[in-house]
């Protein structure tokens, strides 16, 4: 096996030891199924917790399955991304601070292989957890509301995965710049939040922004087709992920020698 494969397997083994392979999917699944469940019970919750005078009638229109899934995705946009950042932030910094990194780098491992193996292993874990939790949410939605068409589910899953990959790449990139995992998480969350804010403030100029993946995925679910800027967004997200990835590799060359 070449060193990329070895590092990739090592990354997964380590995730198992840290129990990340357990908590990441479990947390994502909880987040994903909370939305359909809480929407389903919303009338009861309002009745129980609302302190409303007796006799008040609340009529909430029952959302469609598509709307429920779109709500699940927007729930992911806030908490899910925070969890992505938390799970990726330490991956380089911890190895560097414990000295494992220098042990790895004295072998013939290029920065590209090292960062690439990290990226691939984290991507596999995050996307698998996300897909599992999303499918679980779909199952609940079908159970409690109505079945959503598979093409819509898969399309929104694919587009949303791009946003998760983007957030992950940002965090990995920040990991090559800073030493402390808290700082890494802060920088990446700030960057992601700024990008989302800009694209909601200036939608005309930010059509390319990868954060639009969220609204595009929701649109695909509810209307069956994304808006016109979807191809632009897909291309720019892919390009940005690649650019950040190679910038991270370049930064890492310096980072690794810095002591």
């Amino acid at each position: 096996m070449n060193s990329f494969g070895t590092l990739f397997v090592k990354e997964l083994v380590e995730a198992w030891r840290d129990k990340k392979l357990v908590w990441l999917p479990v947390v994502m699944c909880i987040l994903a199924i909370l939305q359909p469940i809480s929407l389903y019970y919303m009338p009861q919750i309002m009745n129980k917790a609302g302190n409303l005078p007796p006799g008040t009638e609340i009529k909430i229109p029952v959302p469609t399955g598509e709307e429920v899934l779109a709500g699940t995705l927007s729930q992911f946009g806030v908490l899910g991304i925070a969890i992505v950042v938390l799970s990726v932030m330490g991956s380089i910094a911890a190895e560097r601070n414990s000295g494992v990194l220098s042990l790895i780098m004295v072998r013939r491992v290029s920065p590209l292989q090292y960062i690439g193996s990290k990226w691939a292993a984290q991507a596999v874990m995050l996307l698998a957890s996300f897909a599992a939790s999303y499918l679980l949410a779909c199952y609940y939605t079908a159970l409690l509301f109505n079945q959503v068409a598979w093409t819509r589910i898969l399309a929104s899953l694919g587009i949303y995965s791009l946003w998760i990959l983007f957030a992950m790449t940002i965090t990995l990139g920040a990991g090559t710049l800073l030493r402390k995992s808290g700082g890494i998480a802060g920088i990446s969350l700030a960057f992601i939040a700024a990008l989302s804010l800009c694209s909601s403030l200036f939608p005309r100029f930010m059509k390319w922004s990868p954060s639009n993946a969220q609204s595009q995925a929701a649109k695909l679910l509810t209307e069956g087709a994304g808006s016109a800027s979807l191809p632009v967004m897909l291309v720019s997200a892919a390009v940005l992920i690649a650019v950040i990835f190679f910038a991270a590799v370049a930064c890492f060359k310096r980072y690794e020698t810095y002591s």
Binding site: D18, K20, G90, A93, A94, N97, S181
Partner: peptide, 9 residues
């Protein structure tokens, strides 16, 4: 899981 383990030992 994110902060409790002493990663920066």
């Amino acid at each position: 899981f994110a902060f409790g383990k002493r990663q920066e030992r």
